[in-house]
Amino acid sequence: MANQIEKARRVTQPSNTDAELRSVLSDVLSLSADRAAALAADSGLFGALPELDSMAVAGLLTEIEDRFAIMIDDEEVDGDMLGTYGDLLAFVRGKRGEA
């Protein structure tokens, strides 16, 4: 529960990582600005969005690596990392040393 609240708090706080990550998702998944802005910590990604297949995930991760100047190992990619928007944001922030 504390974890959930922590995630929700992170997502609602304005930060460049949050805004940039929404922008990446919007570009890869063709989300409207409104839909991208409405992503909440518990919004489902992998498994919830049919357009997010393995090719789209590969594109998404590559674009995240480029824009945030991080490297993602294949081993790090799983349901815990991509299950929800909050999971993904926490992962990227962790990689950037913001967690």
Partner: peptide
């Protein structure tokens, strides 16, 4: 190399969905 990396990653991810372990 960036194109190849993305293609390899897609293959590793889809293999994993099928329960197979592959390495880029």
């Amino acid at each position: 190399a960036s194109i190849l990396r993305q293609l390899l990653r897609a293959r590793v991810l889809s293999a994993r969905e099928a329960g197979l372990a592959e390495d880029s």
